[in-house]
Simulated assay, not measured.
Amino acid sequence: MTFYIAHRLFAAHDRALAADLADRLAQKVGADRVFLPFCDTDEEDLVAEVKGRRLFELDRERLGRLDAMIAILHGPSLDDGVCMEIGYAAARGVPVVVLTTDFQTYSMTEAGTHLEFPDPLLQAVATRIVRVAKLGPATLPPAPARSRFQGFRTRNVAQTNTALDAALDALLDLPTRAPLPTGSPAAHGAPVYVEASPYTPWGQDHLAKACMDAGHTVVVPQRFTASDPVASSLADLAAVRSAARLLADVSGPETPPGTAVLIGAALASGVRIAAYQPRPTYTHAHGREPNLRNLMIQYASEAHPENDEAVLSWLTA
Protein backbone atom coordinates (compact mmCIF):
# COMPACT_ATOMS: atom_id res chain seq x y z
CA MET A 1 0.00 0.00 0.00
CA THR A 2 1.02 3.60 -0.64
CA PHE A 3 0.18 6.12 2.09
CA TYR A 4 -0.36 9.86 1.55
CA ILE A 5 -0.03 12.33 4.42
CA ALA A 6 -2.19 15.42 3.91
CA HIS A 7 -1.27 18.33 6.15
CA ARG A 8 -1.07 22.10 6.37
CA LEU A 9 2.14 23.24 4.68
CA PHE A 10 2.56 26.86 5.59
CA ALA A 11 4.25 26.88 9.00
CA ALA A 12 7.31 25.06 10.27
CA HIS A 13 5.52 23.42 13.21
CA ASP A 14 2.86 21.95 10.86
CA ARG A 15 5.51 20.50 8.58
CA ALA A 16 7.46 19.15 11.54
CA LEU A 17 4.35 17.42 12.93
CA ALA A 18 3.65 15.80 9.56
CA ALA A 19 7.28 14.73 9.25
CA ASP A 20 7.06 13.10 12.69
CA LEU A 21 3.98 11.19 11.55
CA ALA A 22 5.64 10.21 8.26
CA ASP A 23 8.75 8.95 10.06
CA ARG A 24 6.71 6.82 12.47
CA LEU A 25 4.74 5.37 9.57
CA ALA A 26 7.88 4.73 7.52
CA GLN A 27 9.35 2.71 10.37
CA LYS A 28 6.34 0.39 10.12
CA VAL A 29 5.79 0.14 6.35
CA GLY A 30 8.99 1.43 4.72
CA ALA A 31 9.88 4.93 3.58
CA ASP A 32 9.19 4.19 -0.11
CA ARG A 33 5.52 3.62 0.71
CA VAL A 34 4.99 7.01 2.37
CA PHE A 35 4.42 10.28 0.49
CA LEU A 36 4.88 13.54 2.38
CA PRO A 37 3.96 16.69 0.40
CA PHE A 38 6.41 19.60 0.44
CA CYS A 39 9.15 17.15 1.43
CA ASP A 40 8.67 14.72 -1.45
CA THR A 41 7.76 17.36 -4.03
CA ASP A 42 10.86 19.32 -2.97
CA GLU A 43 8.64 22.39 -2.83
CA GLU A 44 11.19 24.88 -1.57
CA ASP A 45 13.85 24.03 -4.15
CA LEU A 46 11.71 22.87 -7.08
CA VAL A 47 12.28 24.82 -10.29
CA ALA A 48 9.55 24.80 -12.92
CA GLU A 49 8.24 27.17 -15.57
CA VAL A 50 4.94 27.50 -13.69
CA LYS A 51 5.85 26.20 -10.26
CA GLY A 52 2.40 26.30 -8.65
CA ARG A 53 0.85 24.29 -11.48
CA ARG A 54 3.72 21.81 -11.39
CA LEU A 55 3.22 21.29 -7.66
CA PHE A 56 -0.49 20.72 -8.27
CA GLU A 57 0.29 18.18 -10.99
CA LEU A 58 2.76 16.30 -8.79
CA ASP A 59 0.28 16.09 -5.91
CA ARG A 60 -2.60 15.09 -8.18
CA GLU A 61 -0.49 12.39 -9.81
CA ARG A 62 0.25 10.96 -6.37
CA LEU A 63 -3.39 11.30 -5.28
CA GLY A 64 -4.34 9.21 -8.30
CA ARG A 65 -2.39 6.16 -7.16
CA LEU A 66 -2.46 6.05 -3.38
CA ASP A 67 -4.08 3.31 -1.30
CA ALA A 68 -4.75 5.21 1.92
CA MET A 69 -4.59 8.74 3.27
CA ILE A 70 -4.01 10.19 6.70
CA ALA A 71 -5.03 13.84 7.04
CA ILE A 72 -4.17 16.20 9.90
CA LEU A 73 -6.90 18.74 10.66
CA HIS A 74 -6.75 20.91 13.76
CA GLY A 75 -9.12 23.60 14.97
CA PRO A 76 -12.14 25.30 13.41
CA SER A 77 -10.26 26.86 10.48
CA LEU A 78 -9.40 23.87 8.32
CA ASP A 79 -6.81 23.96 5.55
CA ASP A 80 -8.57 24.10 2.20
CA GLY A 81 -5.81 22.25 0.34
CA VAL A 82 -6.01 19.33 2.77
CA CYS A 83 -9.81 19.28 2.51
CA MET A 84 -9.59 19.26 -1.28
CA GLU A 85 -7.20 16.27 -1.09
CA ILE A 86 -9.59 14.45 1.25
CA GLY A 87 -12.43 14.94 -1.23
CA TYR A 88 -10.32 13.66 -4.11
CA ALA A 89 -9.28 10.55 -2.21
CA ALA A 90 -12.77 9.82 -0.89
CA ALA A 91 -14.34 10.09 -4.34
CA ARG A 92 -11.90 7.45 -5.58
CA GLY A 93 -12.79 5.10 -2.74
CA VAL A 94 -9.47 5.61 -0.94
CA PRO A 95 -9.88 5.18 2.85
CA VAL A 96 -9.07 8.31 4.83
CA VAL A 97 -8.04 8.59 8.47
CA VAL A 98 -8.49 12.10 9.85
CA LEU A 99 -6.46 13.09 12.90
CA THR A 100 -7.48 15.98 15.12
CA THR A 101 -6.53 17.27 18.56
CA ASP A 102 -9.33 19.86 18.60
CA PHE A 103 -11.09 19.97 21.98
CA GLN A 104 -14.26 21.52 20.50
CA THR A 105 -17.18 19.88 18.74
CA TYR A 106 -19.49 21.69 16.37
CA SER A 107 -23.18 21.82 15.47
CA MET A 108 -25.37 23.46 12.84
CA THR A 109 -27.72 24.82 15.54
CA GLU A 110 -27.34 25.44 19.27
CA ALA A 111 -28.97 22.12 20.14
CA GLY A 112 -28.04 20.26 16.97
CA THR A 113 -26.06 17.10 16.34
CA HIS A 114 -22.51 17.41 17.64
CA LEU A 115 -19.93 16.98 14.90
CA GLU A 116 -16.18 16.54 14.86
CA PHE A 117 -15.68 19.34 12.31
CA PRO A 118 -17.43 22.60 11.36
CA ASP A 119 -18.73 21.05 8.12
CA PRO A 120 -20.41 17.63 8.47
CA LEU A 121 -19.12 16.59 5.05
CA LEU A 122 -15.69 15.89 6.53
CA GLN A 123 -17.18 13.57 9.11
CA ALA A 124 -19.21 11.85 6.40
CA VAL A 125 -16.30 11.04 4.08
CA ALA A 126 -13.75 10.05 6.74
CA THR A 127 -13.26 6.31 7.09
CA ARG A 128 -11.94 6.82 10.61
CA ILE A 129 -11.59 9.88 12.83
CA VAL A 130 -8.91 9.84 15.51
CA ARG A 131 -9.64 12.54 18.05
CA VAL A 132 -7.34 13.08 21.02
CA ALA A 133 -8.79 16.16 22.66
CA LYS A 134 -7.14 16.29 26.07
CA LEU A 135 -3.68 17.23 27.24
CA GLY A 136 -1.34 14.52 28.42
CA PRO A 137 -1.25 13.77 32.14
CA ALA A 138 0.29 16.29 34.49
CA THR A 139 3.87 15.49 35.39
CA LEU A 140 5.52 15.72 38.78
CA PRO A 141 5.99 19.23 40.18
CA PRO A 142 8.69 21.00 38.16
CA ALA A 143 12.27 20.89 39.30
CA PRO A 144 13.73 24.25 40.30
CA ALA A 145 15.28 24.64 36.84
CA ARG A 146 11.95 24.00 35.09
CA SER A 147 9.09 26.42 34.64
CA ARG A 148 5.37 25.72 34.52
CA PHE A 149 5.57 26.49 30.80
CA GLN A 150 7.94 23.59 30.23
CA GLY A 151 5.51 21.37 32.08
CA PHE A 152 2.65 22.56 29.89
CA ARG A 153 4.72 21.93 26.77
CA THR A 154 5.41 18.39 27.98
CA ARG A 155 1.69 17.76 28.34
CA ASN A 156 1.07 18.99 24.80
CA VAL A 157 3.86 16.82 23.42
CA ALA A 158 2.38 13.83 25.22
CA GLN A 159 -1.03 14.57 23.71
CA THR A 160 0.48 14.85 20.24
CA ASN A 161 2.41 11.59 20.60
CA THR A 162 -0.71 9.77 21.74
CA ALA A 163 -2.62 11.16 18.76
CA LEU A 164 0.05 10.18 16.24
CA ASP A 165 0.29 6.64 17.60
CA ALA A 166 -3.50 6.22 17.59
CA ALA A 167 -3.71 7.54 14.04
CA LEU A 168 -1.08 5.07 12.84
CA ASP A 169 -2.92 2.18 14.50
CA ALA A 170 -6.12 3.25 12.74
CA LEU A 171 -4.35 3.68 9.40
CA LEU A 172 -2.79 0.23 9.49
CA ASP A 173 -6.15 -1.33 10.39
CA LEU A 174 -8.12 0.24 7.55
CA PRO A 175 -10.53 -1.78 5.42
CA THR A 176 -9.82 -2.35 1.77
CA ARG A 177 -10.79 0.52 -0.50
CA ALA A 178 -14.43 0.72 -1.55
CA PRO A 179 -15.82 3.55 -3.68
CA LEU A 180 -18.43 5.77 -2.10
CA PRO A 181 -21.96 5.40 -3.49
CA THR A 182 -22.64 7.94 -6.19
CA GLY A 183 -25.26 8.89 -8.70
CA SER A 184 -25.11 8.12 -12.39
CA PRO A 185 -22.44 9.78 -14.52
CA ALA A 186 -23.40 13.23 -15.70
CA ALA A 187 -25.72 13.05 -18.68
CA HIS A 188 -26.99 15.69 -21.07
CA GLY A 189 -29.05 18.14 -19.08
CA ALA A 190 -27.45 17.16 -15.77
CA PRO A 191 -27.79 19.88 -13.13
CA VAL A 192 -25.36 22.50 -11.89
CA TYR A 193 -24.51 22.09 -8.22
CA VAL A 194 -24.20 25.49 -6.54
CA GLU A 195 -22.21 25.65 -3.31
CA ALA A 196 -22.43 28.93 -1.41
CA SER A 197 -19.82 30.43 0.91
CA PRO A 198 -20.85 30.94 4.55
CA TYR A 199 -18.58 34.00 4.63
CA THR A 200 -20.68 36.08 2.26
CA PRO A 201 -23.92 38.01 2.88
CA TRP A 202 -25.55 37.02 -0.40
CA GLY A 203 -25.86 33.27 0.22
CA GLN A 204 -26.52 30.82 -2.59
CA ASP A 205 -29.53 32.56 -4.12
CA HIS A 206 -27.78 34.91 -6.51
CA LEU A 207 -25.54 32.24 -8.04
CA ALA A 208 -28.41 29.75 -8.22
CA LYS A 209 -30.54 32.39 -9.92
CA ALA A 210 -27.82 33.10 -12.47
CA CYS A 211 -27.72 29.40 -13.36
CA MET A 212 -31.50 29.09 -13.57
CA ASP A 213 -31.72 32.24 -15.70
CA ALA A 214 -29.30 30.54 -18.10
CA GLY A 215 -31.68 27.58 -18.34
CA HIS A 216 -29.90 25.13 -16.05
CA THR A 217 -31.40 22.89 -13.41
CA VAL A 218 -29.81 23.71 -10.07
CA VAL A 219 -29.01 21.59 -7.02
CA VAL A 220 -28.01 23.21 -3.71
CA PRO A 221 -26.58 21.64 -0.54
CA GLN A 222 -28.92 20.09 2.00
CA ARG A 223 -26.52 19.23 4.81
CA PHE A 224 -26.70 22.55 6.67
CA THR A 225 -30.46 22.36 7.27
CA ALA A 226 -31.04 18.61 7.51
CA SER A 227 -31.91 16.78 10.73
CA ASP A 228 -29.23 14.21 9.85
CA PRO A 229 -26.35 16.34 8.53
CA VAL A 230 -23.98 13.41 7.97
CA ALA A 231 -26.41 11.45 5.79
CA SER A 232 -27.30 14.63 3.91
CA SER A 233 -23.60 15.29 3.39
CA LEU A 234 -23.27 12.00 1.52
CA ALA A 235 -26.29 12.98 -0.58
CA ASP A 236 -24.61 16.31 -1.36
CA LEU A 237 -21.44 14.48 -2.35
CA ALA A 238 -23.34 12.11 -4.65
CA ALA A 239 -25.16 15.07 -6.22
CA VAL A 240 -21.87 16.82 -6.98
CA ARG A 241 -20.31 13.72 -8.49
CA SER A 242 -23.25 13.23 -10.87
CA ALA A 243 -23.63 16.92 -11.75
CA ALA A 244 -22.55 18.46 -15.02
CA ARG A 245 -20.81 21.34 -13.24
CA LEU A 246 -19.90 22.56 -9.78
CA LEU A 247 -20.15 26.29 -9.17
CA ALA A 248 -18.44 26.92 -5.83
CA ASP A 249 -18.28 30.27 -4.08
CA VAL A 250 -14.81 30.27 -2.51
CA SER A 251 -15.09 33.75 -1.01
CA GLY A 252 -13.68 34.24 2.46
CA PRO A 253 -10.37 33.89 4.29
CA GLU A 254 -10.03 30.41 2.78
CA THR A 255 -12.20 28.12 0.70
CA PRO A 256 -14.81 26.76 3.15
CA PRO A 257 -13.80 23.23 4.18
CA GLY A 258 -16.83 21.40 2.83
CA THR A 259 -16.61 23.33 -0.42
CA ALA A 260 -12.96 22.29 -0.75
CA VAL A 261 -13.96 18.64 -0.19
CA LEU A 262 -16.55 18.93 -2.97
CA ILE A 263 -14.02 20.53 -5.33
CA GLY A 264 -11.67 17.58 -4.77
CA ALA A 265 -14.47 15.06 -5.30
CA ALA A 266 -15.63 16.85 -8.46
CA LEU A 267 -12.09 16.89 -9.85
CA ALA A 268 -11.69 13.16 -9.23
CA SER A 269 -15.08 12.54 -10.87
CA GLY A 270 -14.51 14.59 -14.02
CA VAL A 271 -17.05 17.30 -13.14
CA ARG A 272 -16.37 20.77 -14.50
CA ILE A 273 -15.54 23.27 -11.73
CA ALA A 274 -15.72 27.03 -11.43
CA ALA A 275 -14.45 28.78 -8.29
CA TYR A 276 -16.42 32.01 -7.87
CA GLN A 277 -14.44 34.72 -6.12
CA PRO A 278 -15.59 38.30 -6.67
CA ARG A 279 -12.69 39.72 -4.66
CA PRO A 280 -9.64 37.62 -5.52
CA THR A 281 -6.71 37.53 -3.14
CA TYR A 282 -3.29 36.13 -3.92
CA THR A 283 -0.51 34.28 -2.16
CA HIS A 284 3.14 34.74 -2.99
CA ALA A 285 5.93 32.23 -2.41
CA HIS A 286 9.56 32.26 -3.54
CA GLY A 287 9.95 31.05 -7.11
CA ARG A 288 6.23 30.55 -7.59
CA GLU A 289 3.75 32.53 -9.66
CA PRO A 290 1.12 34.47 -7.68
CA ASN A 291 -1.60 31.99 -6.77
CA LEU A 292 -5.27 32.56 -6.10
CA ARG A 293 -4.77 31.85 -2.38
CA ASN A 294 -4.54 28.04 -2.58
CA LEU A 295 -2.93 26.49 -5.64
CA MET A 296 -4.78 23.16 -5.23
CA ILE A 297 -8.13 24.96 -5.42
CA GLN A 298 -6.86 27.24 -8.19
CA TYR A 299 -5.70 24.53 -10.57
CA ALA A 300 -8.53 22.13 -9.77
CA SER A 301 -10.92 24.76 -11.16
CA GLU A 302 -11.17 25.45 -14.88
CA ALA A 303 -12.63 28.95 -14.38
CA HIS A 304 -12.47 31.69 -11.75
CA PRO A 305 -15.39 34.03 -12.44
CA GLU A 306 -15.43 37.29 -10.53
CA ASN A 307 -18.96 38.45 -11.44
CA ASP A 308 -22.29 37.20 -12.76
CA GLU A 309 -21.34 37.94 -16.37
CA ALA A 310 -18.30 35.68 -16.06
CA VAL A 311 -20.49 32.98 -14.49
CA LEU A 312 -22.87 33.12 -17.45
CA SER A 313 -19.93 32.94 -19.87
CA TRP A 314 -18.66 29.80 -18.13
CA LEU A 315 -22.11 28.22 -18.15
CA THR A 316 -22.34 28.58 -21.91
CA ALA A 317 -18.78 27.46 -22.64
Rank of each mutant, 00 (worst) to 15 (best):
Q123I: 00
A124Y: 09
A124N: 12
A124K: 12
A124P: 09
A124D: 08
V125E: 06
V125D: 08
A126W: 07
I129D: 03
I129W: 01
R131N: 12
R131F: 02
K134N: 04
L135K: 13
L135Y: 11
G136L: 03
P137M: 08
P137I: 02
A138Y: 04
A138I: 05
T139S: 14
T139F: 07
L140A: 15
P141Y: 01
P141V: 06
P142I: 00
A143V: 01
A143T: 06
P144C: 01
P144I: 03
A145V: 06
A145H: 14
A145S: 12
A145M: 07
R146C: 07
S147M: 05
R148H: 11
Q150R: 13
G151K: 12
G151E: 15
R153A: 15
T154W: 11
R155T: 05
N156M: 14
N156C: 11
N156A: 10
V157K: 14
V157L: 14
T160C: 02
T160S: 08
N161R: 15
N161G: 10
N161M: 08
T162S: 05
A163R: 04
A163M: 03
L164I: 13
D165M: 01
D165V: 03
A166D: 06
A166Q: 12
L168F: 02
D169E: 15
D169V: 11
D169R: 13
D169A: 13
A170Q: 13
L171Y: 00
L172A: 01
D173L: 09
D173W: 01
L174K: 03
L174I: 03
L174Q: 01
P175T: 01
P175N: 05
T176C: 07
R177F: 02
A178G: 02
L180R: 15
L180N: 10
P181L: 10
T182V: 12
G183Y: 03
G183N: 09
G183P: 06
G183F: 03
S184P: 12
P185Q: 13
A186S: 15
P191E: 07
V192S: 09
Y193E: 01
Y193C: 04
V194G: 04
E195C: 08
E195R: 11
E195H: 06
A196S: 08
A196M: 03
P198D: 06
T200S: 14
P201Q: 04
W202M: 04
W202E: 11
Q204H: 12
Q204E: 14
Q204M: 07
Q204S: 12
D205A: 15
L207G: 11
L207K: 10
L207I: 06
